[in-house]
Design a protein around this nucleic acid. Structure first.
Lengths: 192, 192
DNA sequence: CAGGAGCGCTAGCAATGCTAGAGTTGTCGG
DNA sequence: CCGACAACTCTAGCATTGCTAGCGCTCCTG
């Protein structure tokens, strides 16, 4: 019976190996460089092994996305709790979100841009995802006013997402990023 | 000399044929269905002909993007001039933008998400693109207050872009779309 | 009417995600 | 301690992708 346990443990280890290898490769060279062949070479197994763990390349990316989202949630929490002033906290969270997208673009893409069948706005959404959303939500709570907090959070999040994706896609000039972010935060803050 | 002119005219016609075929195919089945082979079959030429007109598939997509952006600009202008009330105009423009993305997703994607080699925030940006941006800008002008109008427009645009991309990517539930849009417009309107 | 230049087509390359079937390894009953 | 069996991994290959080389036809020019 213990022999079965060892096998399953080894399988789990290898699965983690695949995920971290995919993340490393993606962060180093972008997702277009993550081919099943290169990934298999990195983990020192053949391609079909990947498919014994995951349904396909998309499933591997989804696994990386969940991991990466946990990192994002950590960053957002640190930013939110870095100050007592609600308005500054919102600005800090917005800046942290944008910084994450800038610093780890491959991770950001796989979470928020690339087509991956992760459940999002449902109770079945992975915990790290809900955690990240919760941080945004808590940062916005003092600014909600009459608006529904959930919808307000989704809208503010959309603003952040639009800023970073348009900028990274070359649609917005980089240099004014901070000022745009300031405008967004300002417009989502309650007037005193 | 006139023989040369005829050839160039025929070439130009064929180029338009390629562009419209690409757009039609993309709108019908999505960009992932637009392969060079299928496109060549549609225009009833062989694949290499495409490459005598465009540097590659990306260039074809960029051409479709410019065309499509003109359509978007028309929609936005109609929305903006549909009312005299500045706040209602902003709401109408936002709704028109989102409706365009919803109604013609392939066109929206190629303009704002996929093709990268289009100059955007520079004077060399294609005219239709600047026109669309200009409509947004004019709709926001009464709401600018102390903010720089260009940056405010870019930020509002980011909000719209985030809303539609996250919703279409399954990250935001469809049903509350109108309410999120209302929140965005409200937060970007000056307090009376 | 012959020569030549332009131009489109056939055929093929390298790379992709994914899969079938062979072959090897390691485990358990006798 | 051995042989059969089962689980697992690898080699090889398929279909499809964007893109290109080089042949061969057509049609203008002198």
């Amino acid at each position: 019976m213990s022999i079965q346990a060892r096998r399953e443990r080894e399988r789990a280890e290898r699965e983690r190996l695949i995920i971290t290898a995919a993340r490393t490769l993606a962060e180093a060279e972008g997702w277009e460089a993550v081919t099943t062949r290169r990934l298999a070479e990195r983990v020192e197994y053949s391609q079909p092994v990947l498919y014994s763990h995951f349904k396909g390349k998309d499933a591997i990316m989804a696994a990386v996305a969940v991991e990466g989202c946990a990192d994002l949630a950590v960053d957002l929490r640190a930013a939110r709790t870095s100050t007592d002033d609600p308005r500054q906290a919102l600005a800090a969270v917005g800046a942290a979100y944008a910084a994450f997208a800038e610093r780890r673009p491959a991770l950001y893409d796989v979470i928020f841009s690339l087509a991956v069948d992760l459940p999002f706005a449902t109770p079945e959404a992975p915990a790290p995802l809900q955690a990240a959303f919760g941080e945004l939500s808590q940062a916005l709570e003092p600014q909600a006013g009459d608006d529904d907090l959930g919808l307000l959070t989704e809208t503010f999040w959309s603003g952040l997402h639009g800023l970073v994706t348009l900028m990274r896609g070359g649609r917005l000039p980089r240099e004014a990023h901070d000022r745009r972010l300031a405008i967004l935060v300002d417009r989502f803050s309650q007037r005193p």
